[in-house]
């Protein structure tokens, strides 16, 4: 039942490392999560400013020079006075894959909505479960995006997220037996894989391969 996810195991490397993970895939993390070169930091800031300006212009309803300048001003003020937690984007966007991802997302949103709707109106109470799923790519961005999409898509909802171990605790509606549990776990991991294939870096893509990713490194098995 607890195939790939064994949380709270006494893993000394994790405790001592103060958040730095020192497992087999660990070399990747330090690059992704640790100190970044200045150029990278500027790129992160620029992406944030770009988003904020886009939202600002959409709020005003049109893209004019005044709106763009005002948006840049507001974005800079926000970044200076309300510093956000650093989220770095290590991968690259693959537009074609993104289109497929969005299409799949919409289709699954419809399926999930109809499913929840059916569970709501059919007689009897649904059986539920809380499942722990350990993600293979443990960057904050991946954790957050997977959690976000997961809440909307396949009959699942995030109850708790553990940043240190990259584990998501997922509430699954309408469970009918053990194979449903296994299937929902697989769907979470499949969703993560799709997300990484859309925006992940090459290193993150390699983590998806079963040899390095799925097995729990150093844990008692």
């Amino acid at each position: 039942m607890t195939g790939d996810a064994r949380p709270a195991g006494p893993d000394p490397s994790r405790r001592l490392g103060s958040g730095r993970l020192t497992d087999r895939a660990g070399s990747g993390w330090r690059a992704l999560r640790g100190r970044l070169p200045g150029r990278r930091r500027w790129r992160d800031h620029l992406i944030t400013v770009g988003w904020l300006v886009a939202v600002w212009s959409l709020l005003w309803g049109e893209f004019t020079v005044g709106n763009l300048l005002g948006g840049v001003l507001v974005a800079v003020v926000i970044l200076v006075f309300l510093p956000l937690p650093r989220v770095t984007f290590g991968g690259r966007l693959r537009p074609l894959v993104l289109a497929g991802f969005v299409g799949r997302f919409v289709a699954e949103l419809v399926v999930a909505s109809v499913h929840v709707g059916w569970v709501a109106v059919r007689p009897g109470q649904p059986r539920n479960a809380i499942v722990a799923v350990r993600l293979r790519v443990r960057t904050d961005l991946n954790l957050a995006l997977t959690a976000e999409v997961l809440s909307l898509v396949p009959g699942t909802l995030i109850v708790e997220a553990d940043r240190e171990t990259g584990t998501l605790y997922v509430h699954v509606l309408d469970i009918r037996g053990a194979e449903d549990l296994a299937r929902s776990r697989e769907r979470v991991l499949a969703l993560e894989a799709r997300l990484v294939r859309t925006i992940g870096s090459e290193a993150e893509l390699r983590m998806l391969s079963p040899t390095t990713g799925n097995a729990e490194p150093g844990g008692p098995s």
Binding site: M1, A8, Q125, R127, N128, A129, I130, A132, L181
Partner: peptide, 10 residues
């Protein structure tokens, strides 16, 4: 109504 709760083990 909860069949499995893997968060409780934590």
């Amino acid at each position: 109504s909860l069949d499995v709760d893997e968060l409780a083990d934590r």
